[in-house]
Every structure is written in C-alpha cells, then in structure tokens.
C-alpha cells in the first residue's frame, strides 16, 4: 500500500511517499513561501521523480490539525481534491499524533509530550506513552496554557521527551522546574509528512467527504460572541438574584 502524506500545519510544508518498506521519499520546505505555492508542486515533482502517478497512490493522508487554521485547510483541501478526483480513500491524522512518531526513539514507559506553539500563551498539546515501541495516547489533543502544561509534566514521574515547534520554549520553562525532561534534537523535533504517513498507516481510512480539519479553537468572532453571551447571562443572573 502506497501512501502520499501531507503536512502543512505550521511553517514548514512537507510531502512524503511511504509504502510497506517505509519511507520512499520526503520533501521538507521551510522557505517561508506560502503552502499554497509549495505543497502541491512538491507532490507533483516527487511523484515524477519516483516515476509514479497519482493512480499509483492508494491512500492520501494529511495532518488535519491542530495547527495554523489556513495551513491545515490548504493541506485538507489539497488532499480532498486529489482523493475526490481519483475516488480514493483519505486519512486525516492528528498533527500531534504524527509528531509523536518522532518520539519512537525513546524506550518504553517514556512519555512523549508533543507541543506546538498555539500563540496567545497556549500550546497545542497531547501526551503519549511509549508501550511496545509505539506511542499510546494518554489524553486528547488540546489547547492548553503554558503554566497548566508545565504543571502536568511536573507531576509525571517518568522521563518526558518533548517534541514540536513549541518544544524549545516549553523545555526552557520546565528546566527551571527540574522535571525529568529531554528536548528532542533538532532533526527529530518537527512535524513531517513522514510522520503523517506512519500515523495514517495505523489509523482507519475515511471517505473524502468525511475528512475535516480539527481546529481545537473557535474563530475569534465566535469566541467573542460566546463571551459576550456568557457575560450577559451572568449579568442578568446577578440582576435577577438581587431582585
């Protein structure tokens, strides 16, 4: 089974082809050019170099989030276009789950802490534990405050391997807390399409229409509206209480 994987959830754009034997090819571009310019040309060029066509691909995989809203949508919409045109299945995998594959270098019982910079003082995060050489999920993907995450890791008795574009920032905070943490070396730190392919090979397939981005956050407008609605409800309740 041949998988074409896409990763565009943050600054880097990456495309990979994997099969049963492992990685066949991976492109990784951190040029600052928009993903809409680079992602599909990378795939096109890669398949051409491999003397493959889109027809030779059995499954299209993509990191469906969390991450940059626009970046995720470019990846998801690209995979939808390919899979729809070819009537092929897709597999949307968590960006953090794919990233956890970088931690497979660690021995069993180590924790893998995947952290992406989510801005506004938060990380996108999930925790995994290595069992029989594979990362097993301990919590759902979440957007979490830096202090809360530090507290979570501080409470772990096990060694924690930190990966992701938020890893360095997170590690610096934790080092002061003297937790048993290991910062992933740079070559193993970032999300890649290879990780997406590996995660997809272990996950169930979806139909093209079922594939949806996972944002973990509402849009700014929805959040503001909800906050003002909640504020209004609290205000009304207070008024009601005093009457």
């Amino acid at each position: 089974m041949r998988i074409l994987g896409f990763e565009s959830s943050a600054k880097t754009a990456s495309v990979a082809v994997c099969d049963e034997s492992g990685l066949i090819s991976q492109y990784y571009q951190n040029s600052g050019l928009t993903h809409s310019r680079t992602l599909l040309p990378m795939a096109e060029d890669m398949l051409k170099n491999l003397s493959l066509t889109v027809d030779d691909i059995d499954l299209f995989a993509v990191a469906h989030g969390p991450g940059s809203f626009t970046g995720i949508r470019i990846g998801v919409a690209t995979v939808k276009g390919l899979a729809w045109a070819k009537d092929k299945p897709v597999c949307g995998v968590s960006t953090l789950q794919a990233l956890a594959c970088n931690g497979e270098v660690m021995p069993d019982e180590s924790l893998i802490c995947c952290v992406m910079d989510a801005r506004r003082g938060q990380y996108y995060n999930a925790l995994f534990e290595m069992r029989d050489g594979l990362p097993v999920r301990l919590c759902a993907d979440r957007a979490i405050g830096a202090a809360k995450l530090a507290e979570d890791i501080e409470n772990q008795k096990k060694r924690v391997f930190i990966v992701g574009d938020g890893a360095l920032l997170c590690y610096n905070t934790l080092e002061n807390l003297k937790a048993n943490v290991v910062l992933a070396p740079e070559v193993l730190r970032f999300q890649s399409a290879w990780g997406v392919c590996v995660a997809a090979a272990r996950a169930p397939w979806q139909s093209v229409h079922e594939l949806l981005p996972v944002y973990l956050r509402m849009s700014q407008a929805e959040r503001a509206r909800r906050e003002s609605a909640v504020g209004h409800a609290v205000h009304t309740e207070k008024q009601g209480g005093s009457a």
């Binding site: 809409s36 992602l39 599909l40 096109e44 889109v54 809203f69 626009t70 949508r73 470019i74 919409a77 690209t78 995979v79 939808k80 276009g81 390919l82 729809w84 045109a85 070819k86």
Partner: peptide, 19 residues
C-alpha cells in the same frame, strides 16, 4: 477573502492535477 479563496484554489489545483 484570502483564507476562503485558498480553499477553492487548493481543491481545484489538486483535482486538475489528479485528473
């Protein structure tokens, strides 16, 4: 709206290439 246009462009590009 750039984010909106990007969805259509990404989908259409991929479909044209695959077809």
């Amino acid at each position: 709206l750039i984010g909106a246009v990007l969805v259509g462009v990404s989908f259409a590009k991929a479909a044209a290439y695959a077809l």
